[in-house]
């Protein structure tokens, strides 16, 4: 059963917390007070002030972040790299990859980060980490180093899920240099039929 289906089917089992009985009296008292003496104008004012305060806070934060200098940026980068290096479990690594992807969503690629990602692709990492790394790398389609490393990974990868992801990536990049690697996958007896099928389809597309 898929995780999604399991959670949806066992939804009621997730409701196992109970409100303590003693706070019912508190609520009863509060309800009487609120419903009989509620002051909408005052509440509105409070909400208004909270909203203004929240807005100021947001603007101040955005302004602060916007003015971060180069040193601070490098510090962020180093902290992200540290989290990635120190990740001891697959879950921690995946979280670190996602955090880096988010951080560099609207920024130029960073050489150190890219190299760390290439390393994950080359190492015997878990499939989910590799798939996340490929997604992150695809944010930089014009970077030649990224393109070359994805092609190289396609030649070395043996995990079917990652192979499929790489084939789709190469299709997005329309990389003709991937032709020999695709041919190799098609001829490899160990390749799954689904992987071979995708590789053949892409090869046909690239040869058009």
């Amino acid at each position: 059963m898929s995780l999604e289906k399991f959670i949806k089917e066992h939804k009621t089992a997730f409701d196992d917390q109970v409100m303590p009985d003693d706070i019912t009296l508190d609520f009863e008292a509060r309800l009487k007070k609120e419903l009989h003496h509620s002051n909408p104008l005052k509440r509105l004012r409070v909400i208004k002030y909270v909203s203004i305060a929240a807005s100021i806070m947001v603007f101040a934060t955005v302004g602060y972040l916007y003015n971060q200098n180069q040193k601070a940026q490098l510090e962020i980068r180093d902290n992200l790299m540290l989290a990635l290096d120190k990740s001891e479990t697959n879950s921690e690594r995946l979280v670190a990859i996602y955090d880096i992807e988010d951080e560099y969503q609207d920024k130029e690629e960073d050489e150190k980060i890219l190299n760390a990602f290439f390393k994950i692709l080359k190492e015997n990492s878990d499939a989910n980490s590799k798939i996340a790394v490929i997604d992150a790398l695809l944010k930089f389609p014009n970077n030649q180093n990224v393109r070359s490393n994805l092609i190289e990974a396609l030649g070395n990868e043996k995990e079917p899920l990652v192979q499929l992801k790489l084939i789709k990536s190469v299709a997005v990049l329309r990389e003709k240099r991937a032709t020999p690697n695709l041919q190799e996958i098609i001829e490899d007896n160990e390749s799954l039929p689904l992987v071979k099928g995708n590789a053949s389809a892409l090869l046909a597309m690239l040869n058009q």
């Binding site: 995780l3 697959n90 879950s91 979280v95 996602y98 878990d126 989910n128 996340a132």
Partner: peptide, 13 residues
């Protein structure tokens, strides 16, 4: 999708 992947990763580990 990311959350679900992380969740599965945790459960698998």
């Amino acid at each position: 999708v990311r959350g679900k992947r992380l969740l599965k990763q945790q459960l698998q580990s």
